[in-house]
Structure formats: C-alpha cells, structure tokens
C-alpha cells in the first residue's frame, strides 16, 4: 500500500517543472524546487495528496552562497509520510511569500524566522517581535552576527574560580576530576 502511495506521489510531483525529487525512504521525500514554484507545490500537496499538516518551516543561512534556504516540512496523516520542500532565496533583500493562506500555522513559523534571520514574508499576518521582545540588535541567527563579539561588548566575564572547588574538596565534598580521568582517550593503560 505505502509503496503504491509513494509511487503515486512521485508521479504527482513530476507535474511541477524544475523540481528535483529525492526519496530518502518510503516515508520521507526531499524535494528541491525553485522558489517561485513552492506555493504551487504546497497547494498540490495539500489539495491532492493530503499533506495537510505543516510541521515546521526551517531556515539555513548559506552565507557563502549569499542565500537563505527555507525548508517546508509537510506531513500527511493518510500516508504517514513527510515531504520536505527546500527552496533557496537571495540573502538580499531576503523577501519571500507567506504561505499563510495555505497553512495557517505558517504565521507562527514565519514570524519566528523573521525575528531570527530577518527574512520578510509578504502577506504574513504579523511580522512583529515574537520571543526576543526586548532585543534590538541584528537578527541573531544570521551567520554574520558575531555572538562572541557582542557579549564581549555588552557583558562582562568572570573566571570560574577553581579555588572554591578546592575549598569544597578539603571539606570532603565536590570532586575535581583531572581531564585524563574524564577522557577515555587519555586514560593510562
């Protein structure tokens, strides 16, 4: 049965141009599409193949290629299978269409991605701050954001003072584990 469904799905996906389908297993398909074909693909999957659940939208910053990769994971309760649709969009200006009209949960994921990567989704109902409500720096998940430089500038640092530990060990509590005892590779034979 699931073999049949898989076969049927593969045929269905061939209807879209420029698409590359890689079947990872009987229940997982990776699809790479051009960015402008994605809404059509999702519509097809949702309307004709029963992929009614958008599990997540994830984002990868390929800074060397100057591109963002967006991955739409859709799940079908009928065939128990997941289709991951990958698209690439230009890093600048970093604008893409919202799929809110197809999948309403997309509003949530798009808002999150907007906050973390600064991608703007046209037509998404709400692009306001979401979790980082008190953050006014650049979107922190972009690769060019240097977290270490940021904390060096904004926060101070203190060493983890091992003297405390020695005090504790003298009292019979705490354990100082030398690295060679912790790492098996350095263990004495």
């Amino acid at each position: 049965m699931s073999q049949q469904v898989a076969h049927w799905l593969d045929n269905l996906l061939k209807e879209i141009e420029g698409i590359e389908v890689r079947r990872k297993s009987s229940r997982r398909v990776r699809v790479d599409v051009p960015a402008d074909a994605l809404p059509a693909l999702l519509e097809l999957l949702q309307g004709r193949a029963g992929y009614i659940h958008l599990s997540a939208i994830s984002c990868v910053d390929w800074i060397d290629d100057d591109e963002f990769e967006l991955v739409y994971h859709v799940w079908s309760y009928e065939s128990h299978s997941l289709v991951s649709a990958h698209i690439r969009i230009a890093r600048e200006p970093g604008v893409y269409l919202s799929v809110y009209d197809l999948y309403q949960p997309a509003a949530f994921f798009e808002r999150d991605i907007h906050e973390m990567y600064g991608i703007h989704f046209e037509g998404s109902p709400n692009m306001e701050k979401f979790i980082l409500t008190e953050w006014d720096g650049p979107p922190p998940m972009r690769k060019e954001f240097d977290s270490e430089a940021y904390i060096n500038e904004h926060l101070s640092w203190q060493e983890y003072n091992p003297e405390w530990l020695q005090e504790l060990v003298a009292e019979g509590g705490g354990v100082i584990i030398p690295p060679e005892e912790q790492r098996f590779s350095q263990k004495k034979k």
Partner: peptide, 14 residues
C-alpha cells in the same frame, strides 16, 4: 559566569 551559555547573546553572565 554563564556556564555553557557563556557565548550566548541572550543570557546574562554574572
């Protein structure tokens, strides 16, 4: 001192 989140932009260290 921030522990394993020492490098995180979102947590206070000391």
């Amino acid at each position: 001192n921030g522990g394993m989140y020492w490098q995180s932009y979102a947590t206070a260290k000391k």
